[in-house]
């Protein structure tokens, strides 16, 4: 099998680093060179790394805001509907829409739906749960959840070339460079 057909079958090439600084350097350089389809894997969140691999605009906060607004409106109008439309109770002529007493429940439903939006929105944007992912085919990748830092350049990238990309990654003193089976 020649190199070219092998390259299209691979998911990508992955380098293992033992410090976050090396990983950050490699990611920044890769982005500078024009690599776009890549991702870094780390045991804990590292500042500036998402930007280095090309992450742009976070939309999660907006999703949470929308969740909060929907929660607040639903909570209030549920109480309004129950007390004014569905089952109005006239108690000494007091107003049916007694909004101050509807505030606590409105507040709670606001928080509840905003929290749902934050958690489920985050998982959805991350594409989780995901039962299978090619990066796990590298046995050493188990250390990504312990003390090692990985950078994977994917074969879908326009600049991807098995030998050149491998060579590029080897220049950053990685522990090793692996081919990732799809």
């Amino acid at each position: 099998m020649n190199d070219a057909s092998k390259a299209t079958e691979l998911y990508g090439v992955m380098a293992e680093f033992d410090s976050p600084e090396l990983l950050l350097e490699a990611s920044e350089k890769a982005y500078e060179l024009g690599y776009r389809k890549m991702d870094a894997y780390t045991p804990y969140p590292i500042e500036a790394l998402p930007e280095a691999v090309g992450f742009k605009k976070p939309i999660l906060p907006r999703i949470v805001l929308i969740g909060a607004i929907i929660g607040g409106c639903l909570g209030f109008f549920m109480q309004y509907y129950a007390s004014v439309i569905s089952y109005p109770l006239n108690i000494g002529g007091r107003p049916l829409n007694s909004w101050p007493s509807f505030i606590p429940v409105t507040f709670e439903t606001t928080i509840l739906l905003a929290a749902f939006a934050a958690v489920f929105g985050m998982f959805a944007l991350n594409g989780l749960p995901q039962p299978y992912h090619p990066v796990f085919n590298v046995p050493r990748f188990a250390l990504a959840s312990r003390d090692r830092f990985f950078l994977c350049i994917e074969s879908e990238d326009k600049l991807f070339d098995l030998t050149k990309t491998k060579k590029f990654l080897s220049d950053f003193k990685p522990k090793d460079v692996y081919e990732v089976e799809p």
Binding site: S27, D39, A40, Y41, T42, P43, Y44, P45, I46, L49, P50, A52, V53, F55, P58, L60, P61, V64, A118, V119, G121, M122, F123, L125, N126, L128, P129, Q130, P131, Y132, H133, V135, F136, F141, A144, S145
Partner: peptide, 17 residues
């Protein structure tokens, strides 16, 4: 773990959330 793999982009959204 839902297939968590510690991707940098995931970590970013994770911390925001």
């Amino acid at each position: 773990s839902m297939g968590w793999r510690g991707s940098a982009v995931h970590w970013h959204r994770y911390e925001t959330a």
